[in-house]
Design a protein around this nucleic acid. Sequence first.
DNA 1: CGGCAAACCTGCGAGC
DNA 2: TGCTCGCAGGTTTGCC
Length: 280
Amino acid sequence: MLSAMPELPEVETVRRGLAMAMEGRRIAAVTLRRNDLRRPFPPDFALRLTGRRIVEVGRRAKYLTFFLDDDWVLLGHLGMSGRMLVGLAHPGPPGKHDHVLFDTDDGRRIVYQDPRRFGLMDLVEAARLTEHPLLRGLGPEPLDDAFTPPVLSAALAGRNGPIKTALLDQKLVAGLGNIYASEALFRAGIAPDRRASTVAGRRAAKLVPAIKAVLREAIAAGGSSLRDHRRPNGELGYFQHAFAVYDREGQPCPGCDCATGIRRMVQSGRSTFYCGKRQN
DNA sequence: CGGCAAACCTGCGAGC
DNA sequence: TGCTCGCAGGTTTGCC
């Protein structure tokens, strides 16, 4: 079984689990249990997948990319509450939020489950994948070598809003979400409400490695299970135990002995967690 | 273009 | 117990 609440590390954990179960397999059947998620499924969705072999399961930012043997790609996003569960082909009756069932030719069933239905699925020609409207504007992959301090500070130049909000903008760098933006800023010692354009030079040189490190560590931990994230073998991801600041309001700061401890504020409608002394 | 609020949905826990 | 409210790991849209 496998599930995720997805930022980049959770999606990467899902990708790895799905690759194990699906790469090289043929899709024997697809069952759609409703006709839309965030948007409608593309026409003939199940029909176009049935009989196809899955060549590779990839990831771009928080999107999953299932490369098929007819040179099309199934593009998927898990939204806030999407999960991919790998199980046996003949389980009990589908649950209330089991929206898509994929049966593979070796007798397994992959269930797409998504209570809030903020996820989506689409089909796109492989040759046009990067031109897809949902992928076209995405910034660099944070774990790529091409994501460097100069690249980040160039992207931040001219942005007057806070750095934390900027890090959530997928056009700038693609894959960070609310947890890892807070965690990376803590590690870099940068205040979340600092003006984005002032994160350059020395600060950018700290922030980029902090982003890479927190994402790598989270992937190695199987992601963060705040609610019900599961790894392919059924175990919890455990990076939530390594949070320095996220969801730790009022608890002691792990980096200093300040009296206030970890604080919470709201930026663009989302919670930000930080240490007021160590970050500036 | 930048920046913010609201919208899309359901579920859960806290507080009364 | 049961209700209401606030909050949730994401993204898009519409409005200034």
